[in-house]
Each structure stands twice: as C-alpha cells, then as structure tokens.
C-alpha cells in the first residue's frame, strides 16, 4: 500500500520536537503498518517516531515497555514473555504472524485503539500508559480509552504492567474463524487469591466489537468465592449479560454474547488450573 497525498516526511529527534510537529494533517508513524493501510484522507505529513529512544523493555516493579518496541521485541524478551504464566506471550502470538509483529509496535497498536487482542490482556493486568501532551504523565490504560485521550493530541511513550506475585494468575483466549483472522470475541482475566478465596479479579471481554472493557458485575461474582465450577459459570453468565455486544461483518451481537460466556468460562478454568498446578 502507500499513503497517497503524503508530501512531507519528518523524523524528529526529541519527544518535544515530535509533539510540537503534531497537527490536523499530520499522522504519527510508529511501526507504520496501520498508517500505510488506513491513513485518513488528507494526511500531508508522516511523523516517523523511530528516532526517539522508545525501543526498550525495563524490568522494575513489573515491566516498562517503550512505545516503539515491536511486538516481536516483547515476545523475545524472556522475562516479559514468562510473566504470569506467559499470558502476554500467548496474547502477542495471536496478533497476525511474525511478518506483522516484526513491524508493529506496542505504542502504535495502543494509540490506534481498535481491533485488539492485546488491549484486553493489558487491561486484565491493570496496565498503565505514559503519555506526553506537553509534559509526561502516567495513567491507567482503561482511563486512557475511557477519557478518549487516544484521540486527543498526544504521544504515547510507554506501557507498564505491574509486578504480580504467586497469588495471581491470568489467562487469555481469542475465538476466531482461523488462527490468523481477527477475533470474533476475545477475553483476558486475572485473579488474585487470598488462601483459596478470590481477593480481586479482572474479567475483560474484547472485540464486542468495541475495544476490550472489564465486566465489574462478573468480577463481583468472583470476589470472596472459590474458583469452583458453579462460581465460574455464574461469573461467565454475568459477564455475557452485562456487556453490550454489537453486530458487524464478523459476527452478530447474539453470537458474540454466547461466545463471550464460553470465553470467560474457559479463561477462568485455565486460571484455576494454573493455581492448581502451582500447588503441586
């Protein structure tokens, strides 16, 4: 593909310079895979962010991942790939194939904010993002989308996932027609136990077809209970009932609702199995 009409290509050296260059007919380019396919009509300037020092993964109270890190870079980082039983690696392996992952960056993916298998997992892990809109600030990823910040003038510079102890497990599932295809529905959950009771959880369903969002009513079902089959089934039903599903070319709202209950149940079952394996 190509970006028809683009007449200027900028590669700023600093974040302030990059932010200063943003404007209505300017599009930031991270990996560029989405820009080259879906750049809006009327874009005159491509703002390549690849000279900014944002390609890094740091282990500090969890993981901090620079926005220009490719999805392959994340998958090939041993610590990040092993984090929480490999839930991020499992998720990233479902995003296209390596041909895409070698180009696509986590920052570009999150700033785009649509068609995502990664967002549900990051929401389930309570990820935060750092943005620069004149000055740097850090906020929950959920708030970044809830406030529509991803559509305002800013640059996303980092995403962080917090540390998790042995009392926490997480899982991800993508339901799609083929491995390579986009999800009909996806689901990511995390559960923190205290003894054998659920102290806290995140149940996130994505591609509804909206971007992933957590289901607080389903999380309430789990709180204080054990991860037995009945509780898991009740949480799965609560998630499917409380989420608003839509119809598009991939699936109907009715079908998505059925799939979502299945996905939540399977992910919670997988999480229960992970806790049981750890006890052995």
């Amino acid at each position: 593909m190509s970006v028809a009409g683009a007449s200027t290509y900028l590669r700023p050296q600093t974040l302030a310079e990059a932010f200063g260059a943003l404007g209505p007919d300017v599009i930031p380019v991270a990996g560029g895979t989405d820009v080259i396919l879906h750049a809006p009509v009327g874009i005159h300037t491509l703002l390549d962010l690849s000279a900014l020092p944002l390609d890094y993964i740091r282990e500090r109270n969890g993981f901090a991942v620079g926005a220009m890190t490719t999805l392959t870079g994340m998958l090939e980082h041993p610590g990040l790939a092993a984090h929480l039983d490999g839930v991020l690696a499992e998720t990233l392996a479902h995003v296209g194939t390596s041909l895409l992952r070698n180009l696509a960056t986590i920052g570009g993916h999150l700033a785009r904010g649509r068609l995502s298998d990664i967002v549900p997992t990051l929401l389930a892990l309570d990820a935060t993002v750092t943005v620069f809109d004149g000055k740097p600030r850090t906020l929950p990823l959920a708030k970044y989308y809830a406030d529509g910040l991803n559509r305002k003038r800013h640059l996303l510079t980092e995403v962080s996932v917090p540390e998790a102890g042995p009392d926490t497990a997480a899982g991800f599932l993508k339901l799609s027609r083929t491995f390579f295809d986009m999800a009909l529905v996806n689901c990511a959950c995390s559960v923190r136990l205290k003894g054998d009771r659920v102290a806290a959880s995140r149940i996130v369903v994505g591609e509804t077809p909206a971007l992933g969002a957590s289901a607080p009513s389903a999380e309430e079902v789990l709180t204080g209970g054990t991860l037995d089959a009945d509780t898991i089934a009740a949480a799965a039903s609560a998630a499917a009932e409380s989420i608003e599903f839509g119809t598009d070319s991939r699936a109907s709202a009715e079908y998505r609702k059925v799939l979502a209950a299945v996905a939540v149940r399977r992910v919670l079952n997988a999480i229960r199995n992970r806790f049981e394996e750890r006890r052995r």
Partner: peptide, 13 residues
C-alpha cells in the same frame, strides 16, 4: 534480518 510484509513498510523507513 527480520521477515516483514514489504507492502506494509514505508520505503522511508
């Protein structure tokens, strides 16, 4: 060294 879809790469990159 890494395999990519060249149709998704801006030549400038």
């Amino acid at each position: 060294g890494r395999a990519v879809n060249s149709c998704l790469v801006l030549a400038a990159k």
